[in-house]
Computed example of a mutant assay.
Amino acid sequence: MIEKKVKWLWSYNIGKTEQWLSKMAKEGWHLISVNRWTRTFSFEKGEPRDITYRIQYNSKGNTLPKTLQKEGWSLAYSAGKWIFLVNEEQTIRLYPSRDALVKRNRTHAYVLSVISIFYISTSMLPIILVSILSSVMKGEEVLIENLWIIILSVAGIIAVASFAIYVFRTYRRFEISEMDAAIDSIPTGKRIRKFRAAWMYQLEDTREWLEGFAEQGYELERVRAAVFTFRKTEPNHIKYECMFEYKVQPSYFATHKEMGWKLKYSSNMTLLNYSIWAKHYKEEEEVPRFSYDKQEQRQSIKRAFRMNLGMSIYLVFLLSFSFYTNTLVKDEPFIAWSFGGVMRPLLFLGLLYWFYKFVQILISYWKTMKALD
């Protein structure tokens, strides 16, 4: 007996798909094929079995390494680059690597995000809305065709944005699980929160700031944007590392956790990734470091410096251009009850702030590099 089920977005929600396949096997339905185009899974009725499924994405063929075969893994089905593995062992000690699957879903998530941003930013909806508002204010009749265009435009924007958000969120959950990038929380202690704007642009100063709180008995629990949450503990010796990587490898988080580091923050992207790590040590012990090689430390500092300097220059240029167009082109007072009159002071303050941050980035880099000499 054959039964078919359609699961549209299964390739993005890998964890739930594997659980679903295992549940089907417990009910006596065993996977025999997958149609990648119609998203249809075909099952054959048999004896109920307790099976663990593992989905892989591999462009180098579907040959199963002998080490995995010895651990009980076998091929259930393959279609193109997709491989469905099964294991009926009660205790599984070794799981197949899924680096290629993480990279595939990451690419899809980033590409869809770019497409959705481009679609929304180039949409004619704002122009149409301004046109209708102008017609209403002039007492003119609004065409029904324009209303339908607005409805369709809004529906299109919602659909594209929703799909992009869904793909990115499911990919991120899968990546966190596969790369062991979960944040290590602190279960007890009174919480306090501190705000630190643009902390990513001064990683060394942020590190010293965090270590100062540790000496006072406050350990960092997590970071959301510019809000740092601390837990009240005993005064501790905690070494923090604030890192920037152009591209995080799949083993990056697991490797450092095995070395005793606790992950306190990681940005949502593994490309251009910022992270904060913490490690306890005793007073008589050597202060731990991510790397004891000075050349490697210099490279890490230079990497973050280039990224932060580039972003600050871009923001200064963008704010300068916006300030110029709103000040010299507009024929009205600097401050006025208008959109431009409100924006000009804000742009000016933003420009001053990022000039200040630009100088701080340069000074911080000079001090950090000098300390390594």
Results as ranks from 00 to 15, higher is better:
Lys4Pro: 01
Asn13Val: 02
Thr17Ala: 15
Lys23Met: 03
Lys26Gln: 12
Gly28Lys: 07
His30Cys: 05
Arg36Asp: 02
Arg39Pro: 00
Glu47Val: 05
Tyr53Val: 04
Gly61Met: 10
Lys66Thr: 04
Lys66Glu: 07
Gln69Ile: 10
Val86Thr: 15
Glu88Met: 11
Pro96Arg: 15
Ser97Glu: 13
Asp99Gly: 15
Val102Gln: 08
Ala109Phe: 07
Ile115Trp: 12
Ile115Tyr: 14
Phe118Glu: 01
Leu129Glu: 03
Val130Glu: 03
Val130Arg: 07
Val130Cys: 04
Leu147Phe: 08
Ser153Trp: 06
Ser153Ile: 01
Val154Gly: 06
Val160Gln: 06
Ile165Val: 14
Thr170Pro: 00
Arg173Leu: 04
Glu178Tyr: 00
Asp180Tyr: 03
Arg196Cys: 03
Ala197Arg: 13
Met200Trp: 08
Met200Gly: 13
Leu203Met: 06
Arg207Asn: 04
Glu208Leu: 13
Gln216Lys: 14
Gly217Met: 05
Leu220Val: 09
Ala225His: 08
Thr229Ile: 05
Phe230Tyr: 14
Lys232Val: 04
Tyr240Glu: 06
Cys242Gln: 07
Tyr246Lys: 14
Tyr246Trp: 14
Lys247Glu: 15
Lys247Asp: 15
Val248Met: 12
Tyr252His: 10
Met259Lys: 15
Gly260Met: 04
Trp261Gly: 12
Lys262Gln: 05
Ser267Asn: 08
Ser267Ala: 13
Leu271Glu: 07
Lys279Val: 09
Phe290Gly: 14
Arg298Gln: 09
Arg298Gly: 01
Ala304Gly: 11
Phe305Gln: 02
Met307Trp: 12
Met311Cys: 10
Ser320Ile: 01
Phe323Val: 02
Tyr324Val: 14
Thr325Gly: 00
Leu328Ser: 11
Ile335Lys: 13
Ala336Gln: 06
Ser338His: 05
Phe339Asp: 03
Gly340Met: 01
Gly341Val: 04
Met343Ile: 13
Pro345Ala: 03
Phe348Ile: 07
Leu352His: 02
Phe358Cys: 10
Tyr365Lys: 05
